[in-house]
Simulated assay, not measured.
Amino acid sequence: MTYKYSLTSLALATVAGLATGAQAQTLEMVVPFSAGGGTDTVARVFEPAFAEALGRTVVIRNNAGASGTIGAAAAAAADADGNTVGYLPIGPVAIQPSLRDTAYDLDSFSYICQTTSTPVFLLQAAEAENASVEDWVGQGTSDRVVYGSSGPGTIPHLAMAAFASEAGLNAVHLPFDGTGTAMNAMAGGEIDLFVDTATVLEANNVTALAVFAGERLDAYPDVPTMAELGYDLDFSVWQGLFGPAGLSEDQLATFASACEASVNSDAFADLAAKTNTGLLFRGPAEFETFVRQNAEMNATILKEAGLVN
């Protein structure tokens, strides 16, 4: 009788352990875009060193749709047992919740680390007659300028809308369904200006007029910052690692340590060199502060651009 009671107690203890979040050997990493895309590509370079530092198997699950919000919702809704994280970029975390009803908000996440921060450039067609930001400001205050974006609410849109507002431009926004079609439109003279990363700069017949960064980039020392030109604007495409709200301090510390090891790995350095991706590690507290401030700034820009009430 006593032996039977002990087995029952053991079974109950096992169930309780599972219910409270026993850590599995396999960690699921949710990526909110399809395989082969920009976020997925970086996540797959990040994963091996991260897994090695953790001493666990990490499996990437692509959960795409609704501008990344489906995957972000899945990461936020997971149990806070240390078995699920999300590798998420700026869009679904710090932009989309201002544009649509999402099943999560900023309080739905535990903030583990930032991994990348890639500044964006103000671009014009290489053959354009204007030669500087000042030229476009002169045109935009006396006539008008047309700028494109890869879609409403994207970083290219937000950065250009903020610049147009600060410079007092009579600017017309022409959204496209992606960067490729926008570049075709720029080549055809449909749009005057565009904002995007160095990858787009290098792949197209365009010229960089300024970079939306705090200081000049080593790879582009001749490109001035927006701040140098009198516009306090800093925009980047960033990514980071999130968990569901409620991760313990020990879990956060363990994940953040492994994250830092991966960001400092040779594989990540190679990625940065090949794709012009900016690497930046921020730990949990600093990352959370940054994300909340970034989301608040983006919400203000969206409101001023008339995209939200």
Rank of each mutant, 00 (worst) to 15 (best):
Y3Q: 14
A13K: 09
L18Y: 15
A22V: 09
A24N: 13
Q25K: 08
F33M: 02
S34H: 09
D40T: 10
E47N: 15
F50H: 09
R56M: 14
V59F: 10
R61W: 06
N62L: 10
N63H: 14
G68Q: 03
G71K: 02
A75S: 14
D79Y: 11
A80W: 04
A80E: 02
D81R: 14
G82N: 07
N83Y: 13
G86D: 01
G91R: 01
V93I: 13
V93P: 00
R100T: 12
C113N: 15
L123R: 01
N130D: 09
S132W: 13
V133M: 07
G140F: 04
S142L: 08
S142A: 13
Y147V: 03
A159C: 08
N170M: 12
L174G: 05
A182L: 05
A185D: 02
M186D: 00
F194C: 05
T197R: 02
N204T: 05
T207L: 07
L209Y: 01
A227V: 05
L229C: 12
G230D: 08
D232H: 08
D234I: 02
S236H: 07
L241M: 15
A245K: 13
G246N: 12
E249C: 06
E249G: 10
A258P: 03
E260N: 08
A261L: 05
V263C: 11
D270N: 11
T275K: 13
A285R: 07
E286P: 02
Q293V: 13
Q293Y: 07
M297F: 11
T300C: 09
V308P: 12
N309R: 12
